[in-house]
């Protein structure tokens, strides 16, 4: 089935099914405002994506849409056509601050961060500096200088790559614990996928892919070199095109600006480099199979207007 049934566009969507980290919805302390969804510049796409500031802006959350074609909800005694599941998970604000620091570093001098994190198009970006972790973690990506009572910062790619490498290492550990198959899994006749022993490189590459959804392409490439991940020589699609899941490289389809969430489906492109065994496997008819790795893509693409 390569053709897709034409559907009428989602019209008046005014309900969303969300799984949210508990701290984000705890009753605000006195004098603190309710949480707010805001649009900020996505560091990977440079376009608008939806995020949430918790009460008092102390914590930033990512809003990610998990989306499979042809799904709808029953909620109590009602139908909800939009079958997306949204996730609200805590996010490291440093990923969003980084592009501003990098941009400012073109001038090569130390600057106060509040003069750097300014964006006419996304005025809410300055609120990132209110997050508890923001100022305390700038030293991971920038050199710091104290002048009087003021702090000045200058982006350092070297420090940033070290910081990102630690992120990759943490992610590799989490992937090992998880049921996510980072290599090409094999599906048995019972349709239950068996998690295979994956090589260290597969884990690192997968983790690099996940982290790359939060950084620019340039930085992603630099990180790949820093991690000493070999370049992928012959990119090949592992799956037949018809079996590929619809990835979220396209904007979430809807004119509703509410629906501009981060990436729609946790799907990820299959690894591009294949081992000999994988190449053999790739020749096998995989009708009915879907790549496990297809589920996690933090591939973040979003519409702008």
């Amino acid at each position: 089935m390569t053709t897709k049934k034409k559907r009428t566009p989602h019209s008046q969507n005014d309900r969303w099914v969300v799984i949210v980290a508990d701290p984000a919805v705890e009753t605000p302390k006195k004098d603190e405002s309710d949480p707010v969804f805001v649009r900020l510049r996505n560091p990977s796409t440079d376009e608008a994506s939806l995020y949430l500031f918790g009460s008092g802006d102390v914590q930033l959350y990512e809003v990610k849409a998990f989306n499979e074609d042809f799904h709808s909800w029953f909620i109590g005694q009602a139908v909800q056509r939009d079958g997306r599941l949204l996730y609200v998970t805590p996010m490291d604000p440093l990923y969003l601050l980084l592009p501003y620091l990098i941009k400012a570093s073109e001038e090569g001098k130390f600057q106060p961060v509040d003069q750097v994190v300014i964006d006419e198009e996304f005025p809410a970006c300055s609120r990132l500096l209110s997050c508890t972790r923001s100022l305390a973690s700038l030293h991971y990506v920038a050199e710091e200088k104290d002048v009087g009572s003021r702090k000045f910062h200058r982006y350092s790619q070297e420090k940033t790559l070290q910081w990102l490498k630690k992120k990759v290492e943490r992610t590799v550990t989490a992937l090992r614990r998880s049921t996510v198959s980072v290599g090409e899994g094999v599906k048995s006749t019972t349709y239950i996928r068996v998690k295979q022993e994956a090589r260290e490189e597969d884990y690192v590459r997968y983790a690099h892919g996940l982290i790359s959804e939060y950084i620019s392409e340039d930085l992603s490439r630099a990180l790949q070199t820093h991690l000493q991940l070999p370049e992928l020589s012959s990119p090949k699609e592992v799956e037949p095109p018809s079996k590929k899941r619809k990835l979220s490289d396209k904007p979430v389809e809807s004119a509703e600006d509410y629906t501009k969430f981060n990436s729609s489906d946790f799907a990820r492109k299959p690894p591009k480099k294949m081992s000999a065994a994988q190449k053999t496997l790739a020749k096998v008819d995989k009708t009915g199979m879907k790549s496990m790795s297809a589920f996690f893509s933090p591939k973040v693409k979003d519409e702008k207007k």
């Binding site: 980290a21 990923y95 992610t171 614990r177």
Partner: peptide
């Protein structure tokens, strides 16, 4: 499984 991975990426 996403929250666990998100914690690794963002914690």
């Amino acid at each position: 499984a996403w929250p666990d991975l998100a914690e690794a990426i963002h914690g």
